[in-house]
Simulated assay, not measured.
Amino acid sequence: MKVAETQRLILRWVELTDAAFIVTLLNEPGWLQYIGDKGIQTMEDARDYIINGPRAMYEREGFGLFLVERKEGGIPIGLCGLIKRAGLEDVDIGFAFLSEYQSQGYAFEAACATLEYAKELGIKRLIAITTKDNEPSSTLLEKLSMRLEGYVTLPNDSEELKKYGLNLRF
């Protein structure tokens, strides 16, 4: 299901047929460093991740992480979307892109479309979390007008994360 469209991108629900892309993305050095190893090594692991991650959240919340693909060629390049995490009061915007598509404005374009989608859903406030050393993500969040509000540690985790916030205007 298509969620949003920009000049260069389409954001849509993640499908089981995206399993090969998920294996690739979740094993990118940046994903492993800044998000963590989700143990996705096989197509079966990726399908389980899709079913129990994005697809389950779509059913539960009506939103989740969306696959970002380039209009030109329909090439999947990343994930960007809305996440409701345990331990966080507000909905979180998250994103991750293949390294060869970083620093080309795709993440900003997808995140702006995701912010608009959040407004359409009636979400009044978004947050974002990132590791303290993830400067590219912090820069993008600030470009989205999100402001550093402090630090948070998620349940069952020990790492303190930067927490950004943004009140959405309607």
Rank of each mutant, 00 (worst) to 15 (best):
A20D: 06
E109W: 09
F66I: 13
T17A: 11
I40E: 11
E100K: 04
A96Q: 05
G87M: 01
K163R: 15
G81S: 15
G150H: 09
E5S: 05
I127H: 07
R47N: 02
L126S: 11
D37W: 03
S158C: 10
P54A: 07
S158E: 14
L115D: 06
I22E: 12
G165T: 00
Y117W: 14
L26Q: 10
I22S: 03
I35Q: 11
E109A: 05
M43T: 14
L141I: 07
I35N: 06
A96R: 00
I35P: 02
Y164K: 07
Y34D: 01
Y49T: 13
R12L: 00
N156I: 04
K119P: 02
D18C: 05
D90E: 13
Y101W: 12
S137T: 02
R169C: 11
A4F: 14
E15L: 03
E135D: 14
L154V: 00
R55V: 12
K84N: 12
E160I: 10
I40S: 02
W31Y: 11
D37H: 06
M57Q: 15
E116M: 08
G74N: 14
Y164S: 05
L141T: 05
L11M: 06
L65A: 09
G30M: 05
F97D: 12
L121G: 03
D45G: 06
L126H: 10
L32G: 06
A46Q: 09
G62R: 05
D45R: 11
M146T: 09
T153N: 04
L126T: 12
T139H: 15
E69Y: 08
I93F: 15
G39A: 05
L161D: 07
N27H: 02
W31P: 04
F108Q: 10
L32F: 03
K124A: 12
A46C: 13
A86L: 06
E59V: 11
S99T: 14
R85V: 04
R147Q: 13
L144A: 04
R60S: 14
Q41F: 11
L98H: 06
